[in-house]
Deep mutational scan, measured.
Amino acid sequence: MDVFMKGLSKAKEGVVAAAEKTKQGVAEAAGKTKEGVLYVGSKTKEGVVHGVATVAEKTKEQVTNVGGAVVTGVTAVAQKTVEGAGSIAAATGFVKKDQLGKNEEGAPQEGILEDMPVDPDNEAYEMPSEEGYQDYEPEA
């Protein structure tokens, strides 16, 4: 019985440690998101679009440190934060509304985080759909 109880105690310690790591990862992701939003706020009209992409990228980098179902929630929060940063930029006159959601080359930025393969159960990952990809044929 002692062996059984000791095993359960060790398992509990492992769960607590994993929860603490997840909590730490979420806190880091939130900190990076805040950094990115402050970065966007300090940019001029020309830099705002690039700044919004930076927020998304920093958040995406930190999301990889967070495991399990938390990833889905962090990704949703990050996307809403990026959308909010863009709205703030438009409201303050840093950028025109028609410039939001495009990178410096004018290509749409939507789907940055949505296409990231995420499995809350950590069982399997699927690649994003290939609808947006084109076949590449090298020139002879």
Results as ranks from 00 to 15, higher is better:
residue 36 G to C: 10
residue 133 Y to L: 15
residue 73 G to T: 14
residue 55 V to T: 02
residue 129 S to W: 04
residue 72 T to M: 12
residue 124 A to R: 13
residue 83 E to N: 07
residue 25 G to D: 04
residue 133 Y to G: 07
residue 2 D to E: 01
residue 36 G to Q: 15
residue 76 A to W: 13
residue 28 E to A: 13
residue 73 G to Y: 04
residue 34 K to G: 01
residue 78 A to L: 11
residue 128 P to F: 02
residue 12 K to Q: 08
residue 86 G to P: 07
residue 63 V to P: 01
residue 11 A to Y: 15
residue 59 T to H: 02
residue 79 Q to G: 03
residue 10 K to P: 00
residue 48 V to I: 07
residue 70 V to H: 02
residue 5 M to L: 00
residue 18 A to K: 04
residue 106 G to L: 09
residue 116 M to V: 01
residue 55 V to M: 15
residue 78 A to M: 13
residue 85 A to K: 02
residue 50 H to E: 03
residue 71 V to L: 12
residue 107 A to D: 06
residue 17 A to F: 03
residue 44 T to S: 12
residue 120 P to G: 06
residue 131 E to A: 14
residue 86 G to F: 09
residue 5 M to I: 00
residue 2 D to Q: 07
residue 88 I to H: 03
residue 62 Q to G: 06
residue 78 A to I: 15
residue 53 A to P: 01
residue 94 F to M: 06
residue 115 D to Q: 07
residue 128 P to A: 07
residue 107 A to M: 06
residue 42 S to K: 11
residue 131 E to Y: 13
residue 68 G to V: 10
residue 13 E to W: 03
residue 86 G to I: 11
residue 79 Q to R: 08
residue 92 T to N: 12
residue 1 M to A: 00
residue 88 I to L: 13
residue 95 V to C: 04
residue 51 G to F: 11
residue 19 A to S: 04
residue 12 K to N: 01
residue 105 E to A: 07
residue 94 F to G: 03
residue 47 G to E: 05
residue 67 G to A: 14
residue 20 E to N: 13
residue 139 E to V: 07
residue 58 K to S: 07
residue 129 S to F: 04
residue 53 A to Y: 05
residue 123 E to G: 05
residue 30 A to V: 09
residue 63 V to W: 12
residue 36 G to E: 04
residue 65 N to P: 02
residue 4 F to A: 00
residue 40 V to P: 00
residue 2 D to P: 01
residue 9 S to I: 13
residue 30 A to E: 00
residue 3 V to E: 01
residue 8 L to V: 04
residue 60 K to H: 10
residue 77 V to R: 08
residue 111 G to M: 12
residue 82 V to F: 07
residue 7 G to F: 13
residue 74 V to M: 15
residue 47 G to H: 12
residue 91 A to D: 08
residue 69 A to Q: 11
residue 1 M to T: 00
residue 121 D to E: 14
residue 81 T to L: 10
residue 24 Q to S: 05
residue 122 N to F: 13
residue 128 P to I: 10
residue 85 A to M: 12
residue 72 T to D: 15
residue 129 S to H: 07
residue 11 A to C: 07
residue 32 K to P: 00
residue 72 T to Y: 13
residue 38 L to H: 06
residue 61 E to P: 04
residue 110 E to S: 07
residue 49 V to G: 06
residue 127 M to Y: 12
residue 102 K to V: 10
residue 127 M to H: 10
residue 125 Y to S: 08
residue 139 E to K: 11
residue 13 E to R: 11
residue 78 A to W: 13
residue 17 A to M: 11
residue 61 E to R: 11
residue 69 A to W: 14
residue 9 S to K: 12
residue 23 K to G: 01
residue 80 K to Q: 06
residue 113 L to W: 07
residue 50 H to L: 11
residue 10 K to F: 13
residue 88 I to A: 03
residue 21 K to Y: 12
residue 85 A to C: 06
residue 75 T to A: 06
residue 102 K to S: 00
residue 56 A to Y: 07
residue 13 E to K: 07
residue 30 A to T: 03
residue 75 T to P: 02
